[in-house]
Design a protein around this nucleic acid. Structure first.
Lengths: 341, 341
DNA sequence: TTGTAAGCGTTATCAC
DNA sequence: GTGATAACGCTTACAA
């Protein structure tokens, strides 16, 4: 165990300088002569000195660390958001500590305590499905530690939030189906306790209303997870109706794809007999046949935006942290699953 | 800014006790009376005290943090590995700091320095595509900081590694195609500078040899990325051969899927005319039609195993760190793309 | 331009 | 059982 723990003290002794001079030399403090700086750095190099960020940060009462709490890392959407966060934080010299709540409120609470004890300077989180109030995040607010929520954002106005224009996206997607000639449009909906999914339902409904189309409750299928299997079941329900829809707007891509497959197997033509729109623009949507029309949810951008907002709030710490909401504009990506020409 | 920075000093003053007693009480040190402990904890609670892990860790010369360096987070395989690592580390009370090399050697080197300065206690990494030697990881070895590599593992014997049995998996996959009656089997290969991909090619070749089938260089298509587009191009090349293959073993799922689509469009029947095997068991493989036979690469397990190995090495720090290689057994998952009955 | 010394919050050592 | 004190490695007034 070649313990290689050279400290500035060691450098100081070797050079007959004080530790403060060494510290200043290494940090390019203006009051140190160029000559001395060079010599100090050279010796540091030779002895294999490397700074102890932990000690330095501790002294300065900083950590240059932020925490992410996501339900899971291995969901493509979250992995993209995290990637965006890492990208921005890396360039700004911050460390990113990562935690999965696995959709457990209890675990989420425990993680907030860990982050508090570890003195992270900010937090980016998509709350767990079980999270109804954000009391366990309030401590950060009162300590001046900024928190930014994304995706599943709480109702509270106390925190900053990044989201996309779910309502508008759903509205546009539904209008797109209408413009393709669809008259009986179904919606496969997500958990209505989650804001983004109720917004998508609302957008769907209001687009129908705007175009004087009947909002038929039989055509709205509620699912809990929006899993692939949920999509299969939903499509089967639609197939068993006395009159089938001629268009489906799905709250995510997985259900859209499984619905497409169910209808294809039942010898429906897509998009001629039934047009399908998904949500998220997962990679699979441009691989599956027919290619799926969907909405790009700007996940990577969301991560970058969240990170930049958080950094700004960390830097402005002396000012009172004001909560801010940023809405990213999603994009309808039209592909063969709705292209009727 | 309601600064809520209660320290054990504050508790000590309030209770007319020494800081050491407070520290001991909070840490359930045996030499403190139950009564005192209770009173200290109660006051701590009341004043909203929470421990400063940074200070505590600093004092103890520990960080309870490990670093991950992955090429990217938003590749499903890596996100699964990271998820597995987080799962194990969380349960063991370690923080996970995450970094993306984005396949840049320069960035990877910079990250190793950051991790060194931040005194992580261990590192798990999948080296960048540009990484040919691991010199920049040697400093950890000499400092007694364990490093575990996964997926793209270096040749060096100085580090611990987790991998799957790529050779065997490829061998079995190819034999599976042979057992289904395939005689002209193609391989869509990955970058041969990467060990896992050259192993997959080797497994393919040796399976053919074992069964006295000709290894036809025309049937081996080398790609750089194994991207979806690479798969399309590779399949087109195969289509243009005077004699087409009747089976393809692909080094990943994306190329397998695009190859399937190319052959389907050319009116080949899968698996009757041509059987296809992928590699990785990405979720899309059981969604795409026909469902893709593939090899599960145990990504989540790989993360958990890497984390457990790392923890063991951290805990054993006083002993000399011995490098260890763990090979996980992959699993051939047979689906309709090869099921000829 | 350089040095002295205090201190960040905690724990470990020794003493009582 | 409890207390005093030093120390972890570094930064930063303040002094010189």
């Amino acid at each position: 165990m070649a313990e290689n723990r050279i400290t500035i003290k060691d450098l100081a002794k070797r050079m007959n300088l004080s530790v403060s001079s060494i510290s200043r030399a290494l940090n390019d403090h203006p009051s140190i002569g160029e000559e001395t700086k060079k010599r100090v750095k050279k010796l540091a190099e030779e002895l294999g000195y490397f700074p102890n960020s932990v000690a330095s940060n501790f002294r300065q009462n900083r950590t240059y660390s932020i925490g992410i709490i996501a339900p899971r890392i291995d969901v493509y959407f979250h992995s993209l958001v995290i990637s965006g966060i890492e990208e921005v934080m890396y360039k700004s010299g911050y460390n990113v500590m990562i935690y999965q709540s696995r959709d457990s409120l209890e675990r989420e609470k425990a993680i907030t305590n860990i982050l508090q004890n570890n003195r992270v300077e900010g937090i980016i989180s998509c709350p767990s499905i079980e999270t109804t109030d954000c009391d366990h995040f309030c401590k950060f607010k009162t300590m001046g530690i900024p928190v930014v929520f994304y995706d599943r954002i709480p109702n509270s106005n106390d925190f900053s939030k990044i989201t996309i224009n779910d309502y508008e996206a759903a509205f546009n997607a539904t209008e797109h189906l209408i413009s393709m000639g669809c008259k009986r449009i179904s919606h496969i909906a997500g958990n209505q306790n989650t804001g983004i999914f109720s917004e998508r339902l609302r957008g769907y409904k209001e687009a129908l209303e705007k175009h004087h189309l009947n909002v038929d409750p039989d055509l709205i299928i509620y699912t809990s997870n929006l899993s692939y299997e949920d999509g299969v079941k939903s499509a089967q329900k639609l197939l068993s109706l006395p009159q089938q829809p001629d268009g489906i707007f799905c709250a995510n891509d997985y259900t859209a794809i499984s619905a497409m497959q169910v209808f294809l197997k039942a010898n429906y033509k897509i998009p001629q007999d039934i047009a399908v729109v998904g949500f998220s623009n997962y990679p699979i949507s441009r691989i599956i046949e027919p290619h799926l029309t969907t909405i790009d949810d700007r996940a990577f951008e969301m991560g970058k935006t969240a990170a930049k907002l958080l950094l700004r709030q960390i830097e402005e710490k002396n000012a009172l942290i004001s909560s801010e909401t940023i809405v990213l504009k999603s994009e309808l990506i039209i592909r063969d699953s709705t292209r009727k020409n």
